[in-house]
């Protein structure tokens, strides 16, 4: 991770290697901590919960990872770019589900293309406001969420969108290959491709640099606005893709479909160990966080806890992880 920054032509100079080294140690500490939590949780879940280690349950966990992972990866990109997270995840996904199902009569290719394009454009516009003119991410994304919901209500007249009767063109999205649902393969493919892209492309290196120190990146001649717009555009596309899959899975689309996706996405990225301050993290970590969050939800569900407890636990986990990461970093820096 640090080698990426070091090989970048505009990486921090030798004067910062000291700080970089301790940060590296802090990151590694957090990483091993996360692995330990992960292992402990699997153990606890397996031992204490009936029905956890069954094939049906593993399939169920992976099915929810397919959705949560997709939005978590998008959130990771925004977080790595140093712009916290989006609170428009759920709204974008819900709108995508509605657009996809509404456009199915015109053919699935067109429905796919327009839905993803909507996500990318909506993301790019938010990216411009955040990266271009320095507006606050949280506020821009809640404003955007409000606008998206308004447009969705207006266009749908408040009705739930259903796919055309007898349409089977999207059934493959709900199919299974080797017992696992298709979206999980799509997610793994996305993660592999995005990871390679971020490692090998100039964009990937710049993304980390901008997240690490936006002023330094600007001083180095990087057009930081475009990097942030890029991160938000890809994220928007991923949010839309997750919504599309959700719409196909539920065979209905409305604003209610968003559920707790926004919180799950952020929780997964944070739990995966992506620095909320930006500059560090990989999409694999977001996937790992998504698996962890899905497992937590699953264990609580199997044990019959209410939705409220599930949300509460996720909130406490987010709180604990950000505080621990900060303590870890302070210890490394002192």
């Amino acid at each position: 991770m640090s080698t990426d920054v070091a090989t970048a032509p505009t990486g921090p100079g030798p004067a910062r290697t000291g700080a970089g080294g301790s940060r590296e140690a802090a990151t590694r500490g957090a990483f091993y901590g996360a692995i330990a939590v992960f292992a402990a949780l699997i153990l606890y879940g397996a031992i204490s919960t009936d029905g956890f280690l069954t094939m049906t349950n593993v399939r169920a966990i992976l099915s929810s990872v397919a959705f949560v992972g997709m939005v978590a990866v998008g959130t990771a990109l925004i977080m790595i770019s140093g712009n916290l997270f989006s609170l428009a995840v759920g709204s974008t996904a819900a709108a995508a589900a509605m657009i996809f199902l509404a456009l199915l009569p015109h053919g699935i290719v067109l429905a796919f293309a327009v839905t993803l394009l909507m996500g990318v454009v909506v993301g790019a516009m938010q990216g411009f406001l955040v990266g271009g003119i320095g507006a606050n991410t949280i506020i821009v994304t809640i404003g955007a969420a409000g606008l998206i919901q308004g447009v969705a209500l207006w266009a749908s007249h408040g009705a739930t969108i259903l796919p055309p009767k007898g349409d089977t063109s999207f059934d493959w999205l709900n199919g299974h290959i080797f017992t696992f649902a298709v979206p999980i393969y799509i997610l793994f493919g996305t993660v592999v491709v995005l990871d390679q892209f971020l490692r090998r492309s100039r964009f990937g290196r710049r993304l980390k640099l901008v997240g690490e120190n936006v002023e330094a990146a600007r001083a180095a001649g990087i057009r930081t606005a475009w990097v942030v717009i890029g991160a938000f555009s890809i994220a928007g596309g991923l949010f839309a893709f997750a919504g599309l899959e959700l719409g196909a899975f539920n065979e209905s689309g409305s604003l209610l479909i968003e559920g707790t996706q926004t919180y799950d996405a952020i929780a997964a990225a944070v739990v995966g160990g992506i620095a909320i301050t930006g500059g560090r993290g990989s999409v694999w970590q977001a996937l790992g966080g998504a698996i962890l969050i899905a497992m937590i939800s699953d264990i609580l569900l199997l044990r019959g806890y209410s939705e409220g407890i599930q949300i509460l636990v996720k909130g406490v986990v987010v709180f604990a992880v950000v505080v621990l990461a900060r303590l870890n970093r302070m210890r490394a820096e002192s």
Binding site: L84, I138, V270, G315, V316, V318, F319
Partner: peptide, 19 residues
């Protein structure tokens, strides 16, 4: 920074309200 901290609070307390 207050945003990550209060994000945790925001989600946890929302869960508490549902509970």
């Amino acid at each position: 920074s207050s945003i990550p901290v209060t994000l945790g609070g925001f989600i946890a307390l929302l869960g508490l309200v549902y509970v």
